[in-house]
C-alpha cells in the first residue's frame, strides 16, 4: 500500500530524514514512535505530500509521488489524515465539515454526502452534534469529528499525527476507542502516538525512529519486552519510567 525507498529530506541544511525504507501492507497498522525531533511527523506527512521529499521513491496505492500535482491530488483522495490540532473548519457546522470534501472533490450530491456524513458521525458516536460548530464541542468531540471527516472520503490509508496529544486525559480514551475500532475493521493505519496502550492493542508493528532514521521495526510485544537497540531501550526507559 505504501512503499518508501531511499527517501531523504532536508530542511535547508538540516538532514531530517536519512535513507528511509518503509513498507506498509494493506490492512497493516503501524505505530511510529521516537524522541521529539526524530522526523516522525515529517515521515508521515510525506505520504500525502504535505512535505516534499528530495530524493528516493514514494509509492502510495500504486501511484508514485512526484512533483506532479495530479498524482498528489489522486493520492490525497485516498489518504485521510488526522492532525494533533484537529484543524476543523471553524466557519462550517460539523455536518458541513464532513460533506465539504465528498461534494467538492468526489463530486457527490448533497444528499449522498450528508448520508455518508451521518453514518460516520454515528460511527464516532456523536450524531447529535451535526448542526453544531466546532467551537461548541469539546476537544475529544472535535477530534472524533476530524476522524469522521477523514473517513467520509472513504480513504484506503489513515494517517494520525499525534491525535491525542492535545487532549485532556479524560477525552483521550474516547478517541482511542474510535481508532481501535477502525483498526479492527481492517483500515491501513500509520499512527504517531505516545499512547503505548493503544500501540500494544492495535498495532501490528512499532516503528522506532531516532534522528531521522528508522532504528527498529518489530511487533509490539517484542518492542516493549526486549528492544534490540540501545536507543530504543533509552526511549522506552524515559516514557515508561514514570
Amino acid at each position: 500500500m505504501i512503499e518508501m525507498r531511499g527517501v531523504n529530506k532536508w530542511f535547508g541544511d538540516f538532514h531530517v530524514l536519512r535513507d528511509i525504507d518503509l513498507s506498509v501492507a494493506r490492512g497493516e497498522k503501524l505505530v511510529v514512535c521516537g524522541p521529539s525531533g526524530s522526523g516522525k511527523s515529517t515521515l508521515v506527512r510525506l505520504v500525502n505530500q504535505l512535505e516534499e521529499h528530495q530524493s528516493g521513491r514514494i509509492v502510495v496505492d500504486g501511484i508514485e509521488l512526484t512533483r506532479d500535482l495530479k498524482a498528489i491530488e489522486a493520492v490525497r483522495r485516498e489518504v485521510g489524515m488526522v492532525f494533533q490540532q484537529f484543524n476543523l473548519f471553524a466557519h462550517l457546522t460539523v455536518l458541513e465539515n464532513l460533506t465539504l470534501a465528498p461534494i467538492w472533490v468526489r463530486g457527490a450530491s448533497k444528499r449522498e454526502a450528508e448520508d455518508v456524513a451521518m453514518h460516520f458521525l454515528a460511527r464516532v458516536r456523536i450524531p447529535e452534534q451535526a448542526a453544531k460548530y466546532p467551537a461548541q464541542l469539546s476537544g475529544g468531540q472535535q477530534q472524533r469529528v476530524a476522524i469522521a471527516r477523514a473517513l467520509c472520503m472513504q480513504p484506503r490509508v489513515m494517517l494520525f499525527d499525534e491525535p491525542t496529544s492535545a487532549l485532556d486525559p479524560e477525552m483521550i480514551k474516547e478517541v482511542l476507542d474510535v481508532m481501535v475500532e477502525l483498526a479492527e475493521e481492517g483500515m491501513t493505519m500509520l499512527c504517531i502516538t505516545h499512547e503505548m496502550g493503544f500501540a500494544r492493542t492495535a498495532a501490528d508493528a512499532i516503528v522506532f525512529m531516532d534522528q531521522g532514521e528508522i532504528v527498529e521495526r518489530c511487533p509490539p510485544e517484542e518492542f516493549f519486552a526486549s528492544p534490540r537497540t540501545e536507543r530504543a531501550r533509552a526511549f522506552l526507559g524515559q516514557i515508561l519510567g514514570h
Partner: peptide
C-alpha cells in the same frame, strides 16, 4: 493547519 487539512482532503 487549515491549509493542511484542506490539502489533505484533496482540495
Amino acid at each position: 493547519g487549515q491549509y493542511e487539512a484542506a490539502e489533505a482532503l484533496g482540495l
